[in-house]
Computed example of a mutant assay.
Amino acid sequence: MKYRSVFDIIGPVMIGPSSSHTAGAARIGLVARQLFQKAPTWVSFHLYGSFAKTYRGHGTDVALVGGILGFDTFDNRITESIEIAKNSGLTVSFHEEEAHMDHPNTVKIHLGDDSHEMELVGISIGGGKVEIKELNGFELRLSGNHPAILVVHDDRFGAIASVSTILAKNEINIGHMEVSRKEVGKEALMVIEIDQNIGGNIMKQVEALDHVTKVTKIHE
């Protein structure tokens, strides 16, 4: 296995006892917050495997809530995140699930407000690294460790090429890309991990494409 830096070996700068159960959980929560694009008013965490068995003792609960509040893995406020959430009006619930999942450190996050909801499934794979496996029913593989854009679009000829062309014209290099769809010819989701964060101008160019319905970005 190749590592990009020493931090891939020793783990991230973090608050808490475990890179998998604390830092990874915080990062999953933070990706969920970035994808939701604003502060939710309620969130429910459905915990599977070892997450369900040890989430209180390993700080997974405060880490997940901290991520939803927008706190990074090293933010000292994570330890008080549940109290901060309560004071801010965010309703939080935890659910220990018995279903068997492919990975032991799995969480399903369901969050929302009065206008819309979002559901995300993430796993913590060790060393603070995570993968987002599902978003609103779309299967995907998103690391959360690199800048990325998620494009909801019509499943039709030329959709992928048009987005790729905009990124190429703006000298944005694609590190990983995949497309998921629920049904042929209906709604699809394009997930593109890139080498650097992109500005609002490029986002607007992608949003202006007639087959695109929504563009969201996440960043390291």
Rank of each mutant, 00 (worst) to 15 (best):
Y3K: 10
G11I: 05
S19H: 08
S20H: 01
T22G: 06
A23W: 02
V31M: 13
R33W: 09
R33L: 12
L35C: 03
A39E: 14
F45N: 01
Y48H: 05
T54P: 01
G57Y: 05
G59V: 03
L69T: 02
F74H: 11
N76I: 08
T79S: 10
E80K: 03
S81P: 03
I84K: 02
V92D: 02
V92A: 02
E96A: 12
E96I: 06
E97A: 02
E98Y: 09
E98R: 15
D102K: 13
I109G: 04
H110V: 12
D113A: 05
D114H: 11
H116M: 08
L120D: 06
L120Y: 07
V121R: 04
G127Q: 04
K129R: 15
I132H: 01
I132G: 03
I132E: 00
L135F: 13
N136T: 11
G137R: 14
E139T: 14
L140E: 03
L140I: 08
S143D: 07
S143M: 04
P147S: 09
H153D: 12
D154I: 09
R156C: 10
F157D: 02
I160S: 09
I160E: 05
A161M: 11
V163D: 00
S164R: 05
T165C: 04
N170T: 07
N170K: 14
E171F: 13
R181H: 09
G185K: 13
L189S: 13
M190C: 12
I194L: 14
I194C: 10
N197W: 02
E207N: 13
D210N: 15
V212E: 06
K214R: 15
K214D: 15
T216A: 12
I218Y: 08
H219Q: 08
